[in-house]
Design a protein around this nucleic acid. Structure first.
Lengths: 207, 207
DNA sequence: TGCAAACTTGCAGTGACTGCAAAAATATCC
DNA sequence: GGATATTTTTGCAGTCACTGCAAGTTTGCA
């Protein structure tokens, strides 16, 4: 291993993963997600098809850049935030995550936007693969709440938070000129305050 | 066409659909969802594989019995409920739907329970196909709210409601001795009241 | 330099899913 | 009751996502 924390191997893996993600998004933005084969993606990223599947469990996963580290990292974030409610901890974790994402991979998110503009429903399908991540984050929320791990609240919070994220991304992809972070924040606030009452509608107002 | 509202054709279609659903669930409960092929399901239901795909767009869809009429029917229910908030209308529509379901196809739900006991994560995947139904119901909620169809609130309500349903079904499949309707009701209440504050935990209390 | 571990690749195979056109079943009209 | 139009079922051929395995290649470490 090198003196730095990241070995050659790690660096190569990160580059390959990024290349596959970028290839998936670039080609999909160009001709539509299901007019692109994994074979083409792999070719564009200059690796074998088999290698594609070493990095992503499915084509859908490559679309959202599903990363096995996301779940554990989010769980850690939830546990780390101190002196706030579990909900606030979760909210902060989500916002921190997307902030990092936009800082480190803004180009990928712009491509993603192009793809989702064409087919917003892809997001619904793609998020279905996050089951085990939800599990982990839910356990963290449960721990912070002093609730049993199988209680309804943590599961519902994480699941609803995930769809809030999804809704926000969808809106972001369609409407122009809004910051993604703001949309996510708004959606989470709505969940926090309760959906019992619809917000009033202002012509040309916020959102 | 017969004197009754339902022709021979309609009756046969309903029977075939039910047979396919039942075959999917029976075989999956027995040996696990992904150790069953569509070929086997079709054989059990006594139709061709191609016919299976005339009824269900995917194997996942057969698992939850995805019905093209569900979306429109739910939308209608939302619009029909009168003199209540959009949230209440949605809530009532969901509860009415599951009530009908349990009355008309309780046996299928018991089989479903067996399958989900083994693999709760299947539900997450299966619900991903409901994108267009969500669209329809969301439009109905928007109309009742006096909000534009692309506003965040209706989309979020329906999406969150869907995962609330999903969470409730998962809990129902794992815990014994609880009515599914009660669990769904509880989950929707939580959404309505807001997730900002975790409910208190009573030992042995109402989970 | 040499060994061990991690990563990549090709290959062969399974199975979901699709379009198409012919065959079978059902509805409609006289 | 029979001819005809409409639906539904089916088989077939083909594409493509995804998997396990075993061999080849690269990187880490002593």
């Amino acid at each position: 291993m090198n003196q730095s924390g990241e070995s050659l191997r790690d660096r190569k893996k990160r580059r390959t993963r990024a290349a596959l993600e970028r290839a998936t998004l670039r080609l999909s933005a160009e001709r539509g997600f299901d007019h692109v084969t994994v074979e083409e993606i792999a070719a564009e990223a200059d690796v074998s098809v088999r290698t594609f599947f070493n990095y992503f469990a499915s084509k859908d996963d490559a679309l959202i850049g599903a990363d096995p580290e996301t779940g554990p990292r989010m769980a850690e974030r939830v546990l780390a935030a101190d002196g706030v409610t579990p909900f606030e901890a979760f909210r902060a974790a989500v916002l921190a995550e997307i902030d990092d994402e936009l800082n480190n991979a803004r180009d990928l998110w712009l491509l993603r936007k192009d793809v989702l503009m064409q087919r917003p429903d892809l997001l619904v399908r793609a998020f279905a693969s996050s089951a085990e991540a939800e599990q982990l984050i839910g356990a963290a929320v449960a721990q912070r709440s002093g609730l049993p791990a199988d209680h309804l609240y943590p599961r519902l919070l994480v699941a609803a938070g995930t769809v809030a994220f999804r809704c926000a991304v969808t809106r972001w992809a369609l409407d122009d000129e809004v910051a993604l972070g703001d949309l996510i924040s708004e959606a989470l606030d709505l969940l926090g305050a309760g959906l019992a009452h619809a917000p009033h509608h202002h012509e040309g107002g916020p959102s």
